[in-house]
Simulated assay, not measured.
Amino acid sequence: MTTRRTFLTGAAALGTTTLLPFRLHAAAHAADAFMTANGQVTVHPIAHASFVMETPVGTIHVDPVGDAGDYADLPAPDLILITHEHGDHYNADTLAALAGDATPLIVNPAVYDMLPADLQARATSISNGESTSAGDVMIDAIPAYNTTEERLNFHPQGRDNGYVVTVDGLRVYISGDTEDIPEMRSLENIDVAFVCMNLPFTMGMEAAASAVNAFAPTYVYPYHYRGRDNGTQDPRDFAELVTGQTEVKIGNWYDGVMPS
């Protein structure tokens, strides 16, 4: 059974716990904090599919792309996760600018083969269904792929990763680019989920909400829904489709654009 953890807004650091409706939360652009046994995991959305998590055991950057200056006010990464090679998820120049000399990377096999030699030397490649750890962080690679016939070439089955990251007891699901697949629907005990929705490349909000309703995370962020064309899916409409006890959170990537 999932232990429901407390959701805090940025005001919590000042001793004030405020629970915001998702519409107000989107406007506030505040970082979100989720309490764990030994501290809190703070989520900082960057843009599109990129975000940062500060945790009691280090800072994790997920699919960092774009201008390294976008990360200047955040701690340097202690771990970097890459889901797949598309330019809105993987950029070697951004990685080189952000990663320290010993920063480990967890990547899918296709990205591993593309990495410059210095980054590849500290990267670990894991495939769908495999697991690894980085310090006190556990990482499970979850399949991420298209199922609709006309989209199969975007994300073929077996190539790309989603991840379940377990840190200080908090289980975080990162979908990467995928559709409403059985492996997502069967997830269990997810505290925080990041679920993509962006037609025609991944899935629409109806499919994303259906999957979320099936695996019922405590909190869910719709992400990856805004790109150069200002996006195809409205997170507000997605929130209306999510049922049960799952709480929808909207980060500041609502106002961001997919990096070039």
Rank of each mutant, 00 (worst) to 15 (best):
Asp229Asn: 15
Ala92Gly: 06
Pro200Glu: 08
Met197Gln: 11
Arg228Tyr: 06
Pro104Tyr: 11
Leu105Pro: 01
Gly66Leu: 11
Ala117Cys: 00
Glu240Gln: 15
Ala92Thr: 01
Ala216Leu: 00
Ser186Leu: 02
Trp253Glu: 11
Val65His: 04
Ala27His: 05
Arg151Phe: 14
Pro235Thr: 09
Ala110Arg: 07
Ser50Asn: 02
Ile139Gly: 03
His25Met: 09
Met258Ser: 06
Met205Gln: 10
Ala30Glu: 15
Val257Asp: 07
His224Trp: 09
Ser186Ile: 01
Ala49His: 15
Ile60His: 10
Thr17Asp: 11
Gly251Ala: 08
Ser210Gly: 05
Gln245Lys: 12
Thr243Glu: 15
Thr6Leu: 14
Phe7Arg: 01
Asp101Leu: 08
Pro143Gly: 13
Glu130Phe: 09
Thr243Gln: 13
Arg236Val: 06
Glu183Val: 02
Thr16Ala: 10
Ser125Leu: 08
Leu241Glu: 04
Asn213Phe: 02
Gly158Ser: 05
Leu79Met: 03
Leu241Ile: 00
Ala110Gln: 10
Val43Lys: 05
Asp32Gln: 08
Asp101Met: 06
Met184Asn: 09
Ser131Asp: 12
Ile82His: 01
Met258Ala: 11
Thr243Ser: 13
Thr3Cys: 03
His29Thr: 02
Gly244Tyr: 07
Val165Ile: 14
Met35Ala: 14
Cys196Tyr: 12
Asn213Trp: 10
Pro116Leu: 08
Pro77Met: 14
Tyr145Asp: 00
Pro75Asn: 10
Pro56Ser: 12
Ser210Ile: 00
Asn198Lys: 06
Gly176Ile: 03
Val65Asp: 04
Asp177Cys: 08
Ala141Ser: 12
Gly100Ser: 02
Gly231Ile: 12
Ile106Asp: 02
Ala49Thr: 12
Asp88Ser: 13
Thr232Met: 03
Ala72Val: 07
Ala99Met: 05
Asp237Phe: 07
Ile60Phe: 14
Ala117Leu: 10
Asn153Glu: 15
Val137Asn: 04
Ala11Gln: 11
Asp168Lys: 07
His155Val: 09
His84Glu: 15
Ala193Tyr: 09
Asn189Tyr: 07
Ala12Arg: 00
Gly244Met: 05
Leu98Asp: 06
Phe22Arg: 12
Pro259Gly: 01
Gln157Arg: 15
Thr17Trp: 03
Thr243Tyr: 00
Ser131Glu: 14
Glu206Asn: 07
Phe51Ile: 00
Tyr225Gly: 04
Gly135Thr: 02
